[in-house]
């Protein structure tokens, strides 16, 4: 079996892959350490606000992903 790994095959695919990695990095160490402060933003702890920013960023990235997948017309 000559083939190695499944990786993105287009520029848009690579962009999406990088966005997924950035999302995972945003919710884990060391990034989570930078928002680990006992301050409030809009009345909520900074870590909670950051968590929900990451959560809604996931939605935005997947919406963009849907456009890419449906534009390229493949599953």
């Amino acid at each position: 079996m000559e083939r190695l790994l499944v990786l993105p095959t287009s520029r848009a695919g690579w962009g999406l892959f990088i966005a997924f990695v950035v999302l995972v990095l945003a919710g884990t160490w060391p990034v989570i350490g930078w928002v680990n402060r006992a301050t409030l933003v809009m009345g909520l702890p900074l870590l909670v606000v950051w968590s929900y920013l990451v959560i809604f960023a996931c939605v935005v990235v997947m919406l963009i992903g849907n456009r890419i997948v449906e534009r390229d017309d493949h599953e």
Binding site: N36, R37, T39, L40, G43
Partner: peptide
């Protein structure tokens, strides 16, 4: 109805609950 009142009190009295 704002969550701010809850967290302002936690920040003042038990700030260790707001961080890792």
């Amino acid at each position: 109805l704002s969550f701010a009142g809850v967290f302002e009190r936690i920040q003042a009295e038990h700030s260790e609950f707001l961080t890792l």
